[in-house]
Design a protein around this nucleic acid. Structure first.
Lengths: 209, 209, 209, 209
DNA sequence: CATGAATGAGTCTTCATTCAT
DNA sequence: AATGAATGAAGACTCATTCAT
């Protein structure tokens, strides 16, 4: 057991500290000195675990995008045959994920510019994938006449935007319960997409994080 | 009349350059050297026009918030008696403004953290004012039974979020016409708020994708 | 008159300080802090005059090679018709230059490895040019039967080597007079190349630096 | 018998790696990490075999100087009575050694500055010893009238310089055979010292280029 | 007003070295 | 012996800011 940082492995502690600080002050405004201080080591020691500041950012951003994509894919797989349920579940997961992992998602959305070109392309590709999946659900609904779609692209954007916004203010122990938030947004989005009246359908299976 | 930069006054040129660069790379990642270069002068000369880097940011952020507030107030003044028209106009202005002045609004939303505490409080106060105005419209609609409001706060957030999102991608000469965007978002938001599912206002022209 | 560094222009002072320090401790072992200290400014101020540590080295190395080449070319131009006089003058200039500008020449010979690839190629090209000129003189002598050449390449190397060596120990106010050194080496090289007995010929016009 | 690096003992592998890297990039520009990597171990492990970076350099430099001195002494012992043969053998050994162990000799000549003061003095003392031995041979020749010495010190320097130069370019499998190089330099040096222009020794086989 | 130069604080990163395992 | 991790000192470079000209 090398250096018992209260039971947490140093690499994890670094990642966590970076997430917190990047979320709080932004990538550019965060110095590795601060990250190291938060972990309880000296700056130089960071380099035993990371290869540089941007690799730290890249790994956080690629990581969260992978998790986000995986979550959405998982949910869509469960609702292949029922597009209304799919949209419902998709929004549920979307909002829930953006609340539960708000800091990482927020970083993922706001620090694209700080990323080296190569990694930026990879993250953007994943983000595009994510949007395409949501848009697919909306378009399926439109094709089946189960929804009154205004503009599939913009409506996808709207969903994405709500998640992003949630990630900018949600705090686990804030005033609003997560369930309430998820339910409200789900209803709002169903209305927006013009699905039924949104009434009657059973709530999407709440996929715990 | 010494006007070096083809008819543009240096202070305006500085402001414009700063907006462009803060929008493109972020405040922290932009150096005054870059701003000066874009204007066509040297760093030192900037200080004949601004008092420092954060004052430059503050003035941009306070300016855009003032303009945004003024725009919304103007529109609401015109629709005191018809809350549905008020919401419609409010969304129209909201989206239009976020598209037309995307760069400044984007900065206004993303660089809060970079602001000195005092200025930050002032900007946040204006943003809160702005949200309160929108929320007021929604609550009036709810009170009058003209809308089926799910949650006034979250629905206000949703509107704000869409504007913010638009400001992050809208380009004047992009593929989508501004009118189309404004109309689509207006329809989406009216649906979301539950207006028109029974209320008196005529439905927005649903311009399909 | 910005900052009167006892009449010396800052860029020249920087160059001089760098030459002294690179000569004394080597490029890698010299910190810009030391250079700045020697000039009497802070590290950051250096960057008002140079663009980086390697540009500083490159400019010194390219500069000395240009001067060295120019000196040799000048001398060869004066002795087009008399190859023995040419060799004599060439060695005279070679040794004299390597003594008078010992520090820069020494750097030019020892810090090739520290140079960025692109600049290295340029310096090497100049060095090759220089060697080719000397070798040309030797080969001319051989062709005319005025010398008994062993191996033109190696004999050129030998001449180069003597210069390099001189640059490593010569001090203006050292024990040995420059004239004596130049004469001795000239005689030695003439013998080595097998030219006459080296006797009788008038000494090369001492081209003052 | 745990021998990880195909039969080579770790300390020897370290020494070899250091020689290669110091030769290629210079002492200051070489990191112990690179040395370790070349050996196939981690930095920390180096310290099981060496006591520090400068000790590594010192041992290489002192080692090569000892070997060089020993070689020269051995050769001189064999030619006590024949100074011309002594010079010839001395040059032969000198050049041969500087070619065969070029990398170490090169380090020995170029990294003096990097050495801690105490070790530097020891290396310099050995180098002085070496030069004194060569100079002794030359002065003996002068005293006996077997050579026409111009300046004993400078002529010693010239010999040293040629060796140093050879060590900077000689590669075992380069274009030129070692025998040819040794013979050419021997002839050149004999000429330079003025031996054979009347002295009893047979002229060296002048192997033309 | 614009400029060139200076400054000091701060950034990321590298490195030799140490040491518990 | 080898390793992973830590450390402190140092390095090159950037930047906002100031100020004499």
């Amino acid at each position: 057991m090398p250096r018992p940082t209260n039971g947490v492995r140093t690499p994890d502690a670094i990642r966590e500290a970076a997430i917190e600080l990047f979320y709080e002050h932004g990538y550019e405004a965060t110095s590795l000195r601060e990250v190291a201080a938060k972990v309880g080591i000296r700056v130089g020691s960071l380099y035993n675990h990371i290869s540089g500041k941007d690799e730290l950012l890249s790994s956080i951003m690629l990581g969260i995008m992978d998790d986000l994509l995986a979550a959405l894919r998982g949910v869509l797989r469960e609702h292949k045959n029922d597009p209304v349920a799919a949209l419902r579940a998709c929004v549920d997961t979307h909002i829930r994920f953006h609340a539960q992992r708000a800091r990482e998602v927020f970083i993922g959305n706001s620090e694209l510019r700080a990323l080296p070109a190569k990694e930026r392309r990879r993250v953007v590709a994943k983000r595009d994938q994510y949007e395409k999946l949501i848009r697919g659900v909306i378009e399926t609904l439109a094709d089946q006449g189960a929804a009154e779609v205004v503009d599939a692209r913009l409506q996808t954007y709207a969903i994405v935007a709500m998640g992003t916004h949630v990630s900018s203010w949600y705090k686990p122990r804030g005033g609003m319960s997560l369930e309430l938030i998820v339910e409200a947004y789900t209803e709002m989005i169903l209305r927006q997409v013009g699905v039924g009246s949104g009434a009657g359908a059973e709530p999407a299976a709440a996929t715990g994080a």
